[in-house]
Each structure stands twice: as structure tokens, then as C-alpha cells.
């Protein structure tokens, strides 16, 4: 059976070489319709290059020792070719459905080319169809893998951006960090803020951190504990933590929740917090007299 498949592969390669012009033209035309022109996903030259490269790689696979070996370098090259093509199209805003349709179109074109040749026997045709079907299934899987990778990358990038904007830690002076917290604090966000803050202290070697809660609307028991843990962790790293802008509602909530603020330095406003940080670091800011 394997021998028969190898022979069929060689015959298919021969057939492809004979009809390379028409096959290339057909798949190129479809490529132009799906990705070129007004779709503006690939340039005309790019589509031509992709078609030629695809046929070259396919012929190389068919002429390899075992075209069914999905661990062969030829198979891997073809898989990578589709993976890269998918990434390129998806990054430019293309749809995965169009890519899959294009791959199915390629398969159909090859099968039609096969049926046009009268010298192909029924056994050879069967072996070739089996081969093409399993090969293109694998290629569609490679496209979906690229699609999933791309989606994951996008989601990760968005998450990172969200994290970055949710925790705008700024070094306002040498060794003084400010962290204004805006919106609602929940446990997961507090954890993210704490992680980012501690890493930043280590990176910038910050001596003081001013955490401003002016923009925090409400706070619950769990979050207030996390907040105290954050202050404690900052102090354990050897920095001073100053909490500023505690609104009356937050202050009342903290007291009713029995949160011990005796070891936490608090100041009314961000500017008071900064003054306190400067005082501790023995920094004097004075206005220039004209």
C-alpha cells in the first residue's frame, strides 16, 4: 500500500509539473479574488510568489522519500508555508474562513487537474485522492493553529495593555513612585496592582510609594485586606508606603471593617503624600525667588 502511495505521489508530481502553468494560473486568480484587489490583504506579486512557492513545496513533498511522513522536512516546510501565509493574512485583517476556502479551492483545482489526465488509473486516482485529502486536512489544521496563535497573541497583548493602563505607576521623583488607583478595586485587580508595584519597586529601587485612592469609589472587606497586604509588602521590601486621598465613605468602610491602619501612613491628598515622601527622603523643594 505504501509503495502504491509513493508511486502515486511521484505520478502526481509529474502531472503537476506538466500542468503547472494552468494550475498556478487558476489558484492565483482565486487568490487575487479573495485577498487581492479591493480586499487589499496581499499584493499582486505576493499572490504570484505564494502560488509558485506552494507548487514548488508540494512537488518537493511528492518527490520525497515518503510523502505521507508528517515529520519530514518537506512536510514541515509546507506546513510552515501555510502557517506564515495565515499569519500574514490574519494580521492584515483577513478572515480565517477565506483562507480555509482558498485551501479547499487549491485541493479542488488539483483534483480537477487529476481528472483531466486520461492516463491516471483508478487505483492511482484513489491513492492520490486519499493523499490529497489527508494532506489538505493537515494544512487546514495548520491554518487554524496559526489563527488560534494569532488570537491568543492579540488577547495577551490586550490584557497587557489593560494591565498597564490600570496600574499607571509613575516615578515622580528619583526613588518616589506614585500609583493613582481609579475606579473599582476588586481582588484580582488589587493583586495585579500589587504585583506590578512590587516589581517596579525592585526595578527602580524606589524608597517611597504614594498610593492615591482619590478615584476609588468603593471598597469591600476582602479588598481592604489586600490593600493592607500591599502596604505591608511594600514596607517589607524596604520602601515607605503612604496612602492618600481616602474618601469619607472609604474611611468609614475601613473602620467598620476593623482594618488596622496604625502602621500605615495616611495623608489627605496626593500632594500631602508627596510632601511626606520628600520629607522622609530629606528632599527639599523650594520656589525660585525672582
Amino acid at each position: 500500500m505504501a509503495q502504491q502511495l509513493n508511486t502515486a505521489g511521484l505520478k502526481l508530481a509529474k502531472l503537476l509539473k506538466l500542468q503547472v502553468g494552468s494550475i498556478s494560473e487558476t489558484i492565483e486568480k482565486e487568490g487575487q479574488t479573495l485577498f487581492g484587489g479591493s480586499n487589499n490583504l496581499l499584493g499582486s506579486d505576493e499572490i504570484t510568489d505564494f502560488c509558485i512557492e506552494f507548487l514548488q513545496l508540494l512537488v518537493a513533498l511528492l518527490e520525497s522519500k515518503d510523502p505521507h511522513d508528517d515529520a519530514s522536512p518537506q512536510f514541515h516546510a509546507l506546513e510552515m508555508y501555510f502557517n506564515n501565509l495565515s499569519k500574514q493574512i490574519l494580521v492584515r485583517g483577513g478572515r480565517v474562513e477565506d483562507l480555509v476556502r482558498y485551501i479547499q479551492f487549491m485541493q479542488r483545482t488539483l483534483i480537477e487537474a487529476l481528472s483531466n489526465d486520461k492516463r491516471v488509473t483508478v487505483e492511482d486516482a484513489r491513492a492520490m485522492l486519499l493523499f490529497l485529502s489527508s494532506l489538505f486536512n493537515e494544512l487546514i489544521l495548520a491554518v487554524f493553529q496559526a489563527y488560534l496563535d494569532e488570537k491568543e497573541r492579540t488577547v495577551n497583548a490586550q490584557e497587557a495593555e489593560l494591565r498597564e493602563t490600570a496600574t499607571p505607576i509613575t516615578e515622580i521623583w528619583d526613588g518616589v513612585l506614585t500609583l493613582p488607583i481609579i475606579g473599582t478595586l476588586d481582588s484580582s485587580r488589587t493583586m495585579l496592582v500589587m504585583e506590578a508595584l512590587l516589581n517596579r519597586i525592585a526595578k527602580d529601587h524606589a524608597s517611597a510609594v504614594v498610593i492615591d485612592l482619590t478615584g476609588v469609589k468603593n471598597i469591600d472587606s476582602q479588598v481592604s485586606h489586600h490593600l493592607i497586604q500591599m502596604v505591608r509588602a511594600v514596607q517589607l521590601m524596604g520602601s515607605d508606603a503612604i496612602i492618600t486621598g481616602i474618601r469619607p465613605e472609604i474611611a468609614r468602610a475601613l473602620i467598620s471593617l476593623n482594618i488596622d491602619l496604625s502602621n500605615v501612613t495616611t495623608r489627605a491628598s496626593l500632594s500631602d503624600g508627596l510632601k511626606e515622601a520628600f520629607r522622609r527622603m530629606d528632599i527639599h523643594v523650594s520656589g525660585k525667588v525672582a
Binding site: N199, M230, A233, L236, M237
Partner: peptide, 9 residues
């Protein structure tokens, strides 16, 4: 280290 401070807190 941040991880140690986090765990300890």
C-alpha cells in the same frame, strides 16, 4: 524580592 514580599505579606 517582590515574590518573597508578596508571599510574606
Amino acid at each position: 524580592r517582590p515574590t518573597a514580599a508578596y508571599a510574606l505579606a
